[in-house]
Simulated scan of single mutants.
Amino acid sequence: MIPVIPKSTTRSVLVVGGGTSGNALTVLLRRAGIGVDLVEASPDWKASAGSGITLQGNALRVLREVGVLEGIEKDGYAAEGVAVLAPDGTVLHAHEELRTGGDDLPAHIGMRRPGLQQLLIDQVRASGAGIRLGTTATAFQQDAEGVDVTFSDGTTRRYDLVAGADGLGSATRRMIGITDRPEPIGMGIWRAPAPRPAGVRRTEMIYGGRCFIAGYCPTGEDTVYTYLVEPARDRASLAPETYADEIRALADGYGGVWPELRAAFTDPKAVNYACFDRHLVEGPWHRGRIVLVGDAAHACPPTFAQGAAMSLEDVQVLAELLSSGDDWDAASLDRLLTDYHARRLPRVRMVVDASVQLARWLLDGVRDADVPGLMFRTLSALKERP
């Protein structure tokens, strides 16, 4: 458990958004003795947690600092490598993965997203942070010494810093005048949980057939997280009650364990559909005392399974800088936030560009692309601490 730290501190931070990055940032800042309030728009903190997630080693490295690694290892599944299959289920290639978090951590752990969210929620609550659910920040008014934040319930409070961890559609980003927006790249992904077929102990992917990618990742002793990637559709044309029918249709024709997985897709509410976007704020990630974290600043297709890892690395670097002991006067804080951007941008850009490149090779049907080389170069670089 994270010890509860008294709020009698001269430094205060508002974290906007109670997802993976916002929760992790809250815990690390509280551990450093900084006062934190967290606001989350949804009244149900777990409502939009999603189906499954692949946590690469560099994500696990940060989550260990947050204090949830033991729970992840208990509830998730440390997969035994990765395999590429033919559409009929024949294994074409299998390999061990690079351990991007270091040799003392698994290459990756798959787990149910609601399980990860609950572990993080428990840590936030134990940290002593102020928590307000069903609440948004609606206006910021800042000066050289702080930020006055107006909330959706009409209340106002002053903070030394605001961290916008409110996702791809970040209202914080818009309110501080950063005009960069996510750009669709032309792919969509269907995701759903399913019972884990006997013998599935690793992540397995098929490139080709009805979809660009058909894959699954074990998320526990009894569950897997499945995904099928296709050309993007207009979400407005998709009726949520047909989601199970849609994912079953896409899975039809794949061999191996796919008939067993396909039979489990019966509940449309358990199926999620999303489009792939490229997003990277190249310029500064802060305006005065308001700074962006995670998907609010960058996002990429999940072709490297690095979205959560990049967001968590943001949190680690930002928390380290903010707890360094430097003053938080206007000039010093601007320097800290500029350093944060300088440390994160090259690494994030590398991952975003590599993830998009893999997606575009698939979209364009490129047969001789150096996929292994790109993956090796990118993942090798991620072994270095951010």
Rank of each mutant, 00 (worst) to 15 (best):
R113W: 05
R173E: 03
V13K: 05
T179G: 08
T150A: 13
W285K: 08
F276H: 05
G253V: 03
V356F: 12
W328D: 07
G220K: 11
A94S: 15
L92P: 05
A94D: 00
G57M: 06
R248E: 02
P114V: 02
P302V: 01
A305C: 09
T90N: 03
G76A: 02
T138Q: 12
G22C: 03
R343Q: 14
I176H: 08
N272G: 00
E246T: 00
V317P: 07
S324C: 03
T155L: 10
D334H: 14
P184S: 07
A32F: 06
T203P: 01
G167D: 02
D370R: 07
H341D: 13
R377W: 10
L60H: 08
A83P: 05
G134E: 00
S311M: 07
G102T: 01
S324Y: 09
L14C: 04
R125N: 11
S237R: 13
P87M: 08
D334T: 14
R11E: 08
T266W: 00
R181M: 09
V257R: 12
A107D: 06
K383W: 00
D364I: 06
E40L: 02
R99M: 09
G101A: 06
L119K: 04
I109T: 05
A94L: 01
L38R: 03
A270K: 11
V352Q: 11
I206T: 13
L261T: 01
V271W: 05
L14E: 04
E40A: 01
C275M: 11
L69S: 04
E221V: 06
A359T: 11
D334Y: 03
A305G: 12
E40R: 03
T242Y: 06
